[in-house]
Each structure stands twice: as structure tokens, then as C-alpha cells.
Nucleic acid binder design. Structure first.
Length: 586
DNA sequence: GCCGTTTTCGGCCCGACTGTTTTCAGTCG
């Protein structure tokens, strides 16, 4: 069957929206295409399957933002891989015209103008025209705009795309420290994707308040912000906002805000866009208008809430909504009905179930790992070194695995109840779907992680079948690295994740979510899917050294975005309960 | 194009910044 993921469908609709925009189409129609694209990207089910199955249109219409026309588009894309309407629109231009929209300051009107006047339809042509002075005669094209375009092209080529959350978080930490040194700034809060805990961010929003941010002083404060060390170039500077690029290409927006409206600004700039639109629509229905300064009555403009987010959500009849949930995926209804979940927190985690030692490719001994975990206040850990198939890591064969279990038991005794050390293994899935240690050895261990991470490139169907067989193996208690992250860079590496998660839920096999920022095993959307399917989740670090233990902050953020509570995550349970909640031993 | 305690037509979120305008259009978030 044609493989077409939701992101691809969503992209085609998004491109159609942009093309309509360039063509000067109705703005509300354009918004509909965008909304449809967003809904599809956020959908947890595979739309290709729905769109090629029975009652396709009826099921598609249940998705918010999808109407008759959009449903027909989705069906067309799922069956042919193309969207005729988009191709039709694009035929008027050159295919690369959509890339122009990615340049800063280039919107649909400008792209249309460039095409109509000079048939400029790609970045190279734009650069050539700008350098040759051919743009100077166009309306609105002054010297500054041409310079801005050339600079934008340079930046785009040097860096395009999103940044990993830990990179953005580090930048936020450093900038916060610097900003707090400016006299009269006393609070700095990162907003945007970072506050919502997304796995990547396109830019960094920092909200700043304090006496120096009040109206009469903010322009002077903005000057000081623009003078900070580490800024590569200033993109825009006003009285209340400074935008700049860091050396690594990350764009930072610093906003100076009066204390009195800090809550409204925090709400506004935290987003997401779709959450905010829904919230503002809700405000209007209740006779309020909401902007970044306040929630106010439409009738007389009197302010109802502005200083804190809580005031605003409360006035709208809602519980305060954690930023990680603000994606317009049902959180507003839940907040109204006082049914928001009590999300998992870092302090709920009682142990780590996946770690390596010097027996294979780790850097510390069993004892050292146990001591470090005990210091963190953990109640238990599992030592899960590699099995023999991963020869490059000195993987354990049957005999050395049994020896290793003895060592683990010995350390467990030595720890004298300060922490429980469980015996485990991260076992490889072989080409026929079997595991590479014998049953009698696996039976000696509490934690058997069957790991996808060494599977080689195979057609998706074969890969799926292999993983399903490994899950069916009665010794498998945890599915390790469920998205095969170690091979993600080798294209194509794909299998039917939904079928795999389904099987895990069915057989009571827990699904691993590795929590370190460079190794987030499941994207937040995949985690949501796992949760919806009823999978038990385990969070851990795949720690290869003591310093990696407990490095789970970003993984927890992902889990919160998936609406997970402590009861959904196995290693928040006390040891006894954990062991009875894992798939029963045969 | 979507949607509906404003239901089958008539709405659809909002303000700052920029560059080029002397009153505003376009872009962005």
C-alpha cells in the first residue's frame, strides 16, 4: 500500500493554502486549508488507512476542521499520492516558488508581486535580481528591503529548521542570567514552544518584566537588551521588543512588558496559536475580548484579568491549563469540566529501568550506578546491559549474562536496602523475530527489554512482523527504543508503529520512552497514541554513566504533552506494585 | 472552506513592527 504519513498529507494542504494566498484567494478559505492541515498533522491515527477504508468520508468529517472538500482532498491524496488542486495552482508558477515564503519578511503578497513583475520563482533568481538592482523599481522595494532579503537568503542557507529543545533551553538559561543583570529587570520567563515542552522550537520567546519595562523606560531598556553579549545580529528593535539571532542561528524575541499585564502576555506568547484562537473565540462568546494586554469586557473595555494567567482562565470559567496541554486538543473542555489530568512530574519517578555498565558499553560499574541512583533518592534500578548480538559493545552471551546476574544480585545485597537493584538485559531482536539469549537465561531476570535498535533496513511490513514476534515472546516485558532511534538517520527505517503499540497494549508489554533530550524515543504525538491505545509506559535514561541518571526533564515534558499521569507510567510505582504491573512471568 | 445556544447564511482573533507610505500595506507571531 502507498505509504503516506499524516505529515505529508498535511504539507500538501498547507502548500495549497500558501498557493491560494499567493493567488490572492479568499482569506477565510485559506484559513480553512491551514486549519485542516493542522488537524491532520495532530491526528493520532493514520489517515491514509482511514481514507482508503470503509466510510472514509464519514470518518474524516468527524475530525474538526475537516469538511466535505477537505475530506475529498484527503481521500485523493491517500489513493493517488497527489492533490490535483494543488498541482493545478502550482502550475501557474515554478515549483520552487513555495520556498520563497520561508525567507523572513517574504509573505504571499511579496511573492506574488515578484512573480507577476519579473517571474521570480526561486531563491537563486531572487538573489540574482536583488544583486543586479532589478528589484529597485518595484513598489515598496527600497534599499532596506532589498538588503533584508539578501540577508534573509544568507541566513536561510546557513540555517533553516527547528532547534532541539535542550539547545533552546540552554540559550534561555544563559540569556535569562544576562537579562537579570540589567537594572530594573526582575523576572524573565521563557514562553512559546519551550514553555509548552515541544521537542523542538523554531525560535525562543523570552518575556521580561520589572520596573525598567514600564512604558516610559522600556525603550532605553530595549537598547540594553540589544547590547547583550552573544548576539550575532539584530533583526528588529522596537520600544517593547528586540529580535535577534544568536551565533547558532536561533532567533530570540525578547519582550519587555509592564507588570500589570504580565499574565496576559505570558498566556498570549505561550500559545499555541490554535489554543489561543480557541480561547479568544470562547472569550468573545462570553462578552470578553482577549489580547496580550488583558482580558476585557467588550461592552466597556473594563479589565477583567491581566496580571496572572490564573485570573484570565478563571474569568473564562476554566481551570488554569498547564502549558504542555495548550494545543487545542480538548484541554479547554476538560478545564471547563474541572477534569484536567494531574500530569506526571519529575518527582513522581521512583526508579530507572534501563542502564548499562562496564560489563558492556557503559562507563561505570554496577555499584557506581546503584550508588548514584540511591543518591538521587530512587527506590530501585534495573541493570540492563547488552546481549551478545551487539558485539561491538561486548554484548553478553548466555553464560556471561548469568554471571552478570550474579554480580547484580551481589551489589543488590551490598546496597543493604538503600536501593533495590534488579537484574535485566537489553536483548536484541534477531532477523526471525526471536531474541538472542536463551529462555532459561531470560527467566532469571526481572526486566527484559527487547530492543528495536539494532534492526537493519528492511521493508516496513517485514520489520513490523519481526517486532510483533519479539513482543509476543513471553519474556519481553518492555519494548525498547520503540521508534528505532539509533537507525533513524538511515532512511528508510519505518514500520507500523500503531500496530506495534497495539500489540504491546494487548499483551501488557510496557513501551519505553527514553528521556534524554537527544534520545526522545517517542515523539509527543507517538506518546499520545501509545496512551490512547492503553500502553503502559516506562521512562528511563538508557544511562551509560552515572551522570546521565535522572536526566529526564525533557522526557517528562513530552509525557505531560501526552496527558500522562503517574498512573500511566510504570516506574512511578513502588517496587512491588511495579513488578506486579509488568507483564506476568510465564 | 468550515461551522452552528448567532444553525443552511454570514460570520470567521488581534496588535506590533517594518519600510515605505504623509495614512498604510504587508508580515509575523
Amino acid at each position: 500500500m502507498l505509504r503516506m504519513d499524516n505529515k505529508t498529507i498535511s504539507n500538501l494542504l498547507e502548500e495549497t493554502a500558501s498557493l491560494l494566498e499567493i493567488g490572492g484567494g479568499d482569506s477565510f478559505r485559506i484559513r480553512s486549508y491551514r486549519r485542516g492541515a493542522e488537524s491532520i498533522e495532530q491526528a493520532t491515527s493514520q489517515l491514509t488507512e482511514i481514507a482508503t477504508g470503509e466510510d472514509a468520508v464519514k470518518k474524516l468529517l468527524e475530525i474538526p476542521g475537516i469538511g466535505k472538500a477537505m475530506a475529498a482532498h484527503v481521500v485523493e491524496i491517500a489513493s493517488t499520492g497527489r492533490l490535483g488542486f494543488r498541482d493545478e495552482l502550482l502550475a501557474k508558477y515554478t515549483p520552487s516558488i513555495l520556498e520563497l515564503l520561508k525567507l523572513p519578511g517574504m509573505g504571499p503578497k511579496t511573492v506574488a508581486l515578484l512573480w507577476d513583475a519579473q517571474e521570480i520563482g526561486d531563491i537563486d533568481a531572487l538573489e540574482a535580481a536583488a544583486k543586479a538592482g532589478k528589484l529597485d523599481d518595484l513598489p515598496r522595494f527600497g534599499k532596506k528591503l532589498v538588503e533584508k532579503i539578501l540577508k534573509g537568503i544568507e541566513d536561510y542557507r546557513r540555517h533553516s529548521g527547528r532547534f532541539r529543545i535542550d539547545v533552546v533551553d540552554n540559550a534561555a538559561t544563559e540569556l535569562t542570567r544576562a537579562l537579570l543583570k540589567i537594572p530594573g529587570i526582575d523576572t524573565v520567563t521563557p514562553a512559546g514552544s519551550l514553555r509548552r515542552g515541544r521537542e523542538t522550537a523554531g525560535d525562543l520567546d523570552l518575556l521580561v518584566t520589572g520596573p525598567s519595562c514600564e512604558e516610559s523606560l522600556s525603550a532605553a531598556t530595549a537598547e540594553k537588551v540589544a547590547d547583550l553579549d552573544g548576539i550575532a545580529s539584530i533583526m528588529a528593535q522596537g520600544n517593547n521588543k528586540v529580535s535577534f539571532l544568536l551565533q547558532n542561528g536561533l532567533q530570540v524575541d525578547v519582550r519587555l512588558l509592564p507588570r500589570s499585564s504580565y499574565g496576559a502576555a505570558l498566556q498570549y506568547f505561550t500559545g499555541s496559536k490554535t489554543h489561543n484562537v480557541a480561547l479568544r473565540q470562547r472569550a468573545l462568546k462570553s462578552g470578553y475580548t482577549l489580547n496580550e494586554y488583558a482580558l476585557a469586557r467588550v461592552a466597556d473595555n473594563s479589565i477583567v484579568g491581566a496580571a496572572t494567567e490564573l485570573e484570565i482562565y478563571s474569568a473564562l470559567g476554566l481551570d488554569w491549563i498547564p502549558p504542555e496541554l495548550r494545543e487545542n486538543l480538548g484541554e479547554l473542555d476538560a478545564a471547563e469540566q474541572r477534569k484536567l489530568p494531574k500530569l506526571i512530574e519529575q518527582k513522581d519517578v521512583r526508579g530507572d529501568l534501563h542502564m548499562h555498565t562496564t560489563a558492556t558499553d557503559g562507563h561505570n560499574t554496577i555499584r557506581e550506578m546503584a550508588e548514584a541512583a540511591a543518591e538521587r533518592g530512587y527506590e530501585y534500578i534495573a541493570i540492563t546491559d547488552h546481549s551478545k548480538n551487539l558485539a561491538m559493545t561486548n554484548g553478553l552471551d548466555d553464560r556471561s549474562a548469568i554471571n552478570h546476574v550474579h554480580h547484580i544480585r551481589q551489589v543488590d545485597k551490598e546496597m543493604a536496602g538503600r536501593i533495590r537493584v534488579l537484574a535485566g538485559i537489553e536483548v536484541d531482536i534477531l532477523s526471525d523475530g526471536s531474541l538472542d539469549l536463551s529462555d532459561s537465561v531470560l527467566a532469571e531476570m526481572e526486566i527484559v527489554i527487547s530492543s528495536v535498535h539494532t534492526l537493519f533496513n528492511q521493508p516496513a511490513e517485514e520489520m513490523t512482523a519481526r517486532i510483533l514476534r519479539a513482543i509476543e515472546n513471553p519474556h519481553t516485558r518492555i519494548l525498547g527504543h520503540p521508534t528505532g532511534r539509533l537507525l533513524l538517520r538511515r532512511e528508510p527505517f519505518s514500520f507500523d508503529l500503531e500496530a506495534v503499540l497495539q500489540k504491546c497494549a494487548e499483551l501488557g508489554v510496557a513501551v519505553e520512552h527514553n528521556a534524554t533530550p537527544e534520545r526522545l524515543d517517542l515523539r509527543d504525538r507517538d506518546l499520545r497514541l501509545a496512551h490512547e491505545l492503553g500502553c503502559k509506559i516506562v521512562i528511563d535514561t538508557d544511562a551509560h554513566q552515572t551522570t546521565s541518571l535522572g536526566n529526564i526533564r525533557f522526557g517528562i515534558l513530552q509525557m505531560r504533552r501526552a496527558w500522562l499521569t503517574p498512573s500511566n507510567v510504570l516506574n512511578t510505582l513502588p517496587l512491588k506494585k511495579l513488578l506486579t504491573s509488568l507483564r506476568p512471568k510465564r
